[in-house]
Design a protein around this nucleic acid. Structure first.
Length: 299
DNA sequence: GGGGATCCGCCTATTACGTCA
DNA sequence: GATGACGTAATAGGCGGATCC
């Protein structure tokens, strides 16, 4: 296994108000970590310009050779370049318009690889991959808690602070969002599974109840006990999961609902409310929280 | 105002690398 | 030392919105 794994805090949850199957933890939302308290320096970073960003992690393993700062400066210029600049004017795919991300040589300009090691050292076309230090990962996580997207200024400031390239910060956030979404999908999947199980159980129960009612129907109405007269229409109360009779439960307080003769008055009141606003949307999908948690990109 | 070109950021799928058992 | 599994940095391609002309 890996050494000490950084806790990515990927625990996710569904909307508590709509979730009939409460799951542990509730940390994911548009801001994935709304409950976490952010340190002051995160605020400083997130609200700072490039100039204001303070180098706070001087001892960080930067996976870079000395002198990489010059590359960073160059990148900052690139990131801040106007749309009309030479580089940004290159149209087409990202690989064409942002050739530096892959360390290739375009237009006579050469970039270093992501580790800050030149391509000459790495060999032609190789794709070396850096391993972010724990400190770098922690800082990125803290920023991700605050915003799961970064403005260009924030990205540059963060890159400068971590001694990374802005593109690396951008990629980290993209991958982090992807991991979060993947985790959310797993949670949603589990939710659907449980809901399906519940519906299956409910279906069985209703079929059994219908069979019982059909058996009762075979008897003459005169033979039925008063509290077992078949209702004109059957409705299932979503709260108590019983069959109720609208005509009886809503008209007379002295007449009890077919299947709730033992219900306390409070329940009858509940049934009246329910009948006034029937369970118009039995489709669980309409109530499920799927997608909304991560589809909003402008958190 | 409409439409094409371009830029930009993001998403998704995939690749490739580093680490560990 | 070789190998497979796993995590993840990085790449590639596509899409939609914003802006410009």
């Amino acid at each position: 296994m890996m050494q000490e794994k950084v806790d990515l805090r990927l625990s996710l949850s569904l909307h508590p108000s709509q979730n009939p199957f409460p799951l542990p933890s509730s940390t994911y939302s548009h801001s994935p970590f709304p409950l976490c308290q952010k340190p002051q320096w995160i605020n400083n970073l997130l609200h700072s310009s490039v100039e204001e960003a303070q180098p706070m992690l001087k001892g960080i393993d930067v996976n870079r050779k000395p002198g990489a700062e010059s590359v960073l400066e160059e990148e900052e210029g690139e990131e801040a370049s106007s749309p009309g600049s030479t580089l940004s004017s290159v149209s087409g795919k990202r690989s064409e318009r942002d050739p530096f991300s892959s360390g290739v040589v375009v237009h006579g300009l050469e970039r270093t690889s992501s580790r800050g090691v030149s391509d000459e050292e790495d060999g032609e076309g190789s794709r070396k991959k850096l391993r972010l230090s724990k400190e770098q990962s922690a800082v990125l996580e803290e920023c991700f808690k605050e915003h799961n997207t970064l403005s260009p200024k924030q990205k540059i400031a963060l890159a400068k602070q971590l001694n990374l390239r802005p593109r690396q910060v951008e990629v980290w956030f993209q991958n982090r969002r992807a991991r979060t979404k993947l985790k959310q999908n797993e949670v949603d999947c589990e939710y659907l599974k449980r809901w399906c199980e519940r519906l299956t159980q409910e279906n069985r129960r209703l079929q059994k109840e219908a069979a019982e009612l059909r058996a009762l129907k075979l008897l003459s109405p005169m033979q039925l006990p008063v509290n077992m007269m078949p209702p004109t229409t059957l409705t299932i109360c979503p709260s108590c999961q019983r069959v109720i009779s609208p005509s009886k439960s809503s008209n007379s307080s002295s007449t009890t609902a077919t299947a709730t003769s033992s219900s306390p008055p409070a329940n009858r009141q509940h049934h009246r409310l329910f009948l006034a606003a029937p369970y118009s949307n039995p489709n669980p999908w309409a109530l499920a929280p799927f997608g909304s948690a991560y589809l909003n990109r402008s958190s």
